[in-house]
């Protein structure tokens, strides 16, 4: 929040503004529509009618310019890593990242012999929430969304965003 960052302590104006801003941000998380591997199938299932992620205000947005959440759903190969970094850089602030599944978290089954797989997407972009599983069930991803919303709820416009 630029000029007011780290200049105020909590007061009635800041905290009220915080509450409003955080409510707005966490209630309309728009993840950028892209999936890399099998986790994307579960992500699509989460978005579809049975699990209906829209009830949390989460709707896929097929452009990085209007998205504020990135779900890294799948195996991040070294060839893909630079593309992911570019997509992340194209997103406007504030932006959040969920690493979905073991591949995006740590390399998963490619940990030992995957010469082409990045061992954790956090080598290229900062990750807010890690969702374990191979692939995680839609319930797990929804839990990840809720965790991220809790994290956003604790943010303040007057302090630097926690990495």
């Amino acid at each position: 929040m630029g000029i007011i960052e780290n200049k105020f302590r909590d007061n009635v104006i800041i905290t009220s503004a915080d509450k409003f801003m955080n409510w707005a941000r966490l209630s309309s998380l728009w993840p950028i529509t892209f999936g890399i591997a099998c986790c994307a199938i579960e992500m699509m299932a989460t978005a579809a009618s049975r699990y209906d992620q829209d009830r949390l205000g989460i709707i896929p947005r097929p452009s990085p310019r209007q998205a504020d959440l990135m779900i890294v759903a799948g195996t991040v190969t070294f060839k893909m890593a630079s593309r992911i970094k570019r997509l992340y850089e194209q997103m406007p602030e504030p932006k959040y990242v969920i690493a979905m599944g073991c591949c995006a978290t740590s390399g998963g089954p490619y940990w030992q012999h995957g010469y082409h797989v990045m061992k954790g997407v956090d080598q290229v972009i900062p990750v807010d929430v890690y969702v374990p599983g191979c692939p995680p069930r839609p319930e797990s991803l929804l839990e990840g969304f809720i965790k991220l919303q809790d994290k956003i709820r604790r943010e303040s416009i007057a302090t630097t965003q926690a990495a």
Binding site: F78, K79, A81, S82, G107, W111, Q112, Y115, H116, M118, K119, G120, Q123, V124
Partner: peptide
Amino acid sequence: LPDDWEGFPLRKDYVVAEKYRGWTIRK
């Protein structure tokens, strides 16, 4: 593989490099 990849990975004598573009390959 990316165009700037070195080596041919399915050869039996292929040795996995330490880094690719500064990223750690094996942890």
